[in-house]
Design a binder for these strands. Structure first.
Lengths: 222, 222
DNA sequence: AATGTTATTATGTACCTACATATTTTGTCA
DNA sequence: TGACAAAATATGTAGGTACATAATAACATT
């Protein structure tokens, strides 16, 4: 039934910006309950095809967007799934007040102590991803007791700290001498960066730049 | 109520792999209807936090993933939203059998004629994104009649051709001399690439590489 | 005409029921 | 023991009802 409704809309040849009948009418036409139409429309709304507004009704998005869902796994898992041997190395672990750039990511105005963790992830002994991370000690005081040599911060946080909001930013940078040295690539090479910041109920958890070696690709699943 | 349930689960301190009570029991505990729990759990399932299986019950994903949703808008829209002036230029429009690389993207075994379209998108007169696209003339014969000088292929396709499947791949490359020339950057500079392939009911529509100028960032919304 | 109040309207959320469906467990028979 | 059928189980989907909520339109008041 849900699929029937989806197809009815998709093949109904509504153009961008067109307003659809109200749920109740659609339900009448398609001979089903309003709640069923509601569920179907919610799906379409989630997938970005239509926009719904109370009282305003439902209309096909006038500016269509491609909505892609990325699955960013734990790095260890990602490496092992490819059949490669995983390893990781803690480069740095220090406590400090975060720089303005980090504060901005967290949308914080008053600074507090955080843990800075830098680590390298390896795939079959080769550098794979360089991780530069800040962890809020106010929100995650337990992190003080973890040394991150056995288990990477990436893994420890994902396994131990639920989050309610996550911002992701993707971009490319050229390797500076430090990145080039750590990742064992030439200076200037194009590197793919995934930047992630997480919160739990508006309290900052962590922000991380994951800098990948050349050849790295992020794919949508599903 | 839904939020209450989400919080109850998030703060319930279930670890990865843990099995949650069945919907009916949760409903009992939280004093609400099963359908409400069902919806809440569907949400959590969609956001990748838990996995549900009929008869198997619900459990927290043992390998947590960060699930991020990207909104990739029409390029014109993206530029205009920033308050910049949009422009675009058709560089090439030719008909040919696609190379193996494109066939592979489409998961096709037998080749058929396609339209290759190259275009530059400008923001305030500066190169913004270079688009290298193949369009299947078998699936979209109407494309033969469009010249793509007035409206970019990017925009025409999104407005006129619905799709049912979309694969996205993101990565970084260094500018070769051709890219450097077209995008007016130095050779070797890091460029962010969004590669997209779409189908309608298993029939290939288009595959495109959108190569962005340095500084480009893709952000998650929501 | 500007302002505030009150309907109206379409979607959002929740409740409850019934049945469908996928999976596993159990039972039965050769 | 092995194979196959039947019961049990947890989630999935749909129906139908009631009320909440946001946005707008209509109306009245000054």
């Amino acid at each position: 039934m849900r699929d029937t409704i989806h197809n009815a809309i998709l093949c109904g040849r509504y153009g961008p910006g067109d307003r659809l009948p109200r749920d109740a009418d659609l339900a009448d036409n398609l001979n089903c309950a309003r709640s069923t139409v509601q569920r179907a429309m919610q799906d379409l709304s989630n997938s970005g095809l239509v926009e719904r507004r109370r009282k305003g009704g439902t209309r096909v998005r006038s500016e269509p967007v491609t909505r892609a869902t990325l699955n960013i796994p734990i790095i260890r898992r990602e490496v092992e799934q490819k059949g490669a041997r995983y390893g990781h190395q803690l480069i740095r672990r220090s406590q400090a007040l975060p720089p303005r750039k980090v504060m901005a990511k967290f949308e914080l105005s008053t600074p507090h102590h955080m843990l800075q963790v830098e680590a390298l992830h390896f795939s079959n002994g080769c550098p794979y991803i360089l991780e530069d991370r800040w962890i809020s000690l106010k929100t995650v005081p337990e992190a003080r007791e973890v040394d991150f040599t056995q288990q990477s911060a990436n893994e420890w946080l994902l396994l131990n700290q639920p989050y309610s909001r996550c911002d992701v930013s993707l971009f490319a940078i050229s390797a500076n001498d430090r990145f080039a040295d750590l990742l064992q690539v030439k200076i200037g090479v194009a590197l793919f960066v995934v930047e992630r910041t997480t919160w739990i109920d508006k309290a900052p958890i962590t922000t991380v730049q994951a800098i990948a070696t050349p050849g790295y690709q992020l794919l949508t699943r599903c």
